[in-house]
């Protein structure tokens, strides 16, 4: 791994293990009354969000602040971007201020990789278009391991709008790194192009039939992805009702899952469309770890900032 975190493919198993281990100790900080460590004192982190975000941006901000870094948030709205400044000029301007890390969310796939070539700061991908969201995959792995231990051989099923999901793309990489078995489920119109060749090369399974997957190989983890209602107008599926009946985690499906696998984890990267891809019963069930994911988000992002900005040059080589 370089000094950037652009793709989950950049992380070796040792890298992931080290980050998750650090995250565990950061999680302890989070439970203290005084949630502050001096680790990143004097460092400057800019969260540059070209796309709306609540949880990712606030968790990066909290992560930086709890580690005593100076954290500044910028959004496209209200910045020079809205005056027509190019991405390159915007980040060059920020870079000229000698910041240590740039956390970037952008609506274009590949934007973070571009930026990493232009700046001296460490670049952290906080979501680029429909490409990747590596810290989400790390916090998902953290949450799974906290509940299941080692993920080797565990079956993780990811359901939803795979074609447009960066959460899926990063998760499938990190879960492979950690040895989990993955099945992804979506209607054909929400499968990414070329999924047959991709899944064959990377060793995950695909299906159009959620009920068959739940019945034949009940998952240890069922991850429901957000389905944007805009996809309906794009003709990806006819009605929300039809989607929910085919691919939602409805009450009957929840019952079927828990009958087969009482300890199964229910996950969702948020924000949820209750009643569309996930029922209220599922979202609020004792098996749901959706808020644990949010909580882990801060600890994992503290760990990522630590390893990129401070961490010793370990064998994994992800140090600054």
């Amino acid at each position: 791994m370089t000094r950037h975190l652009i793709s989950s493919a950049d992380l070796t198993r040792d890298d992931v293990e080290a980050i998750l281990e650090t995250a565990a100790s950061m999680h302890d900080v989070q439970r203290r009354e005084v949630k502050k460590v001096p680790t990143l004192r004097g460092r400057t982190i800019i969260n540059f969000f070209f796309e709306d975000s609540t949880r990712t941006r606030s968790s990066f901000e909290i992560a930086g602040k709890w580690m005593s870094a100076d954290t500044i948030n910028l959004s496209a709205k209200g910045s020079s971007t809205s005056k027509g400044e190019s991405l390159r000029d915007s980040v060059a301007t920020i870079n000229a201020m000698a910041v240590d890390a740039l956390v970037i969310r952008h609506n274009q796939s590949g934007a973070c990789r571009q930026v990493a070539g232009w700046v001296g700061a460490s670049v952290i991908n906080a979501g680029d278009g429909t490409h990747e969201h590596p810290t989400q995959a790390l916090l998902d792995a953290y949450t799974m391991r906290a509940n299941l231990g080692d993920l080797t051989g565990r079956h993780v099923v990811i359901v939803g709008d795979l074609a447009h999901s960066r959460v899926f793309r990063s998760n499938v990489l990190t879960l492979a790194t950690l040895g989990a078995r993955v099945t992804v489920v979506a209607p054909p119109t929400l499968m990414p192009a070329g999924i047959a060749a991709w899944s064959a090369a990377d060793g995950f399974a695909t299906s159009w039939d959620l009920d068959a997957v739940l019945a034949d190989d009940p998952p240890d983890v069922l991850m429901m992805l957000r389905v944007q209602r805009e996809r309906m107008s794009g003709g990806y599926f006819p009605t929300p009702r039809e989607y929910t009946i085919g691919y939602g985690l409805t009450r009957p499906r929840l019952a079927a899952l828990l009958a087969a696998r009482p300890e199964a984890l229910i996950m969702h990267p948020g924000p949820m469309n209750r009643g569309l891809e996930i029922s209220a019963e599922a979202a609020d069930s004792p098996n749901s770890v959706i808020l644990d994911q949010v909580s882990a988000g801060v600890a994992v992002r503290m760990a990522v900032l630590y390893h990129l900005l401070v961490g010793e040059a370990t064998s994994g080589g992800y140090a600054a």
Binding site: H155, R181, T183, V185, P188, T189, M191, P192, A193, G194, I195, A196, A197, S199, A200, A205, T206, S207, W208, D209, L210, A212, V213, A215, D216, D217
Partner: peptide, 24 residues
Amino acid sequence: CTSPTSPPRRASRSSAGPSSGGSP
């Protein structure tokens, strides 16, 4: 499969897939 996306690979660990009810 006649969709513009390729037919999903048959799930190797389950019987789910194009032939078990997923096909259009």
